[in-house]
Nucleic acid binder design. Structure first.
Lengths: 110, 110
DNA sequence: TATAAATGAAACCATACGGTTTCCAAAAAA
DNA sequence: TTTTTTGGAAACCGTATGGTTTCATTTATA
């Protein structure tokens, strides 16, 4: 749970963190409220939230005794854009030809 | 490196695997050709490719003595769609109001 | 046929990950 | 001022991850 190079792709790889994102996107919540949505312990949820903050997807501010968590999902733009780079693969109308050329075994010695 | 439930989000969380995807999207390659693009060992690359196949992003077919790898990135649609769910967060024109309402501290007891 | 190329498989390793429990501190509420 | 509430922090644990080296096997090639 150290601060290795925390990037957005790694942050969203965990289903629990994607759920947290879903929660916080709708309304900001303090830590306990977030944890209430899960069966796992509060510290576990807190660690997930910390990871989300480390890559900027969640912003935390302490108010009194509580930790107020809000989503800031601008970072997901990067993910969307990266995936869309390969849109041709699921958008059948596009570039079928290009891909066919490439599936040709004769390309294999490149 | 076991077959836990391999999902696309986890598969793309590793930068090396995203690079492999980038390579194979342009042209299919056999394992050694893929490995040539990296400084790590061939077995390491092979493991990454295995993970990519486990979630369907890469298809492998053995031809003679070589392992021919091709991308099948339809699975990235899921990623794109998930990220786009939160498009409002980076598309400033949209829903600024809705989000402002939500950033209001008085919401915190939901 | 002997040799080289391409790869799978196994064993191993250090560290990251995802979780737990326990304890402590600070605010808020009774 | 006790007592909750809220959550940070630490220690720990089992397993997954990402890498290595070594060896065996299969297929082409000289």
């Amino acid at each position: 749970m150290n601060q290795t190079r925390r990037d957005v792709f790694q942050a969203i790889s965990d289903p629990t963190r994607r759920e947290i994102i879903g929660l916080l996107a709708r309304h900001s919540l303090n830590l306990n409220k977030v944890a209430d949505h899960f069966t796992m312990s509060r510290p576990a949820v807190a660690k997930h939230i910390r990871i989300l903050t480390e890559c900027g997807l969640v912003i935390v501010q302490t108010r009194g005794r509580e930790t107020y968590c809000q989503a800031d999902l601008k970072g997901l733009k990067q993910v969307s854009e990266w995936a869309n780079t390969y849109q041709e693969f699921w958008n059948d109308k596009l570039d079928a030809l290009e891909r066919l050329l490439d599936e040709d075994p004769s390309d294999e010695n490149l």
